[in-house]
């Protein structure tokens, strides 16, 4: 997702305004001039300045240079955008979505089933064949469970499928 400098700059500046305003609302420490509101306000003002400069395109020449350097190393083929921008943008939401699924499901159905579903879904999204995705989804969660639960003693919820160890 590539946005124009104007968009990202205004976003940064807005964030700065919010931080400055939010910072100014914090109650002061009695008897002190300097309290919890100073630091967020300094940051907020900095963000406003940076946001404006980004929106105006100041410093953009550095980026072009760095990109040219990197393109020289990696070759232009790596930079090629996928064919359907909207489709690829939706794919980008899959990994964070699966993490949220983990948060939702792990206490309900347990670690091993949740992880198996996550791995299966993301392996298919990466274009794995069923021949690879199914055994991976069956075995990898058990191996991860063994390492984290048994060796590192992380309390992973057993849920529907408790492991024998």
């Amino acid at each position: 997702m590539r946005l124009s400098d104007r968009v990202t700059g205004s976003f940064v500046a807005t964030l700065g305004v919010l931080a400055t305003y939010g910072g100014s609302q914090f109650p002061p420490v009695p008897g002190q001039d300097v309290g919890p509101s100073v630091f967020p306000m300094v940051i907020g003002i900095g963000l406003i300045l940076c946001g404006l400069m980004i929106a105006l395109g100041i410093g953009h020449s550095y980026e072009d240079e760095a990109e040219a350097d990197l393109a020289a190393v990696q070759g232009p083929s790596q930079q090629a955008e996928p064919a359907s921008p909207l489709g690829s943008r939706l794919w980008a939401l899959l990994p964070p979505g699966l993490l949220l699924f983990y948060v939702y499901a792990v206490d309900r159905i347990g670690f091993v089933p949740t992880a198996a579903l996550m791995i299966f879904a993301s392996a298919l999204a990466f274009g794995a064949r069923l021949r690879v995705a199914l055994p991976l989804a069956a075995l990898a969660p058990i191996a991860i469970h063994l390492i984290f639960y048994k060796l590192l003693r992380v309390p992973l919820p057993p849920g529907l499928l408790p492991m024998p160890w």
Partner: peptide, 20 residues
């Protein structure tokens, strides 16, 4: 090793690691 096998495992490790 196919990327389709590594990346899903890494994703689960991210979840478990952060939880831990």
């Amino acid at each position: 090793a196919p990327r389709a096998a590594i990346m899903p495992v890494i994703l689960v490790c991210c979840a478990v690691g952060a939880f831990a």
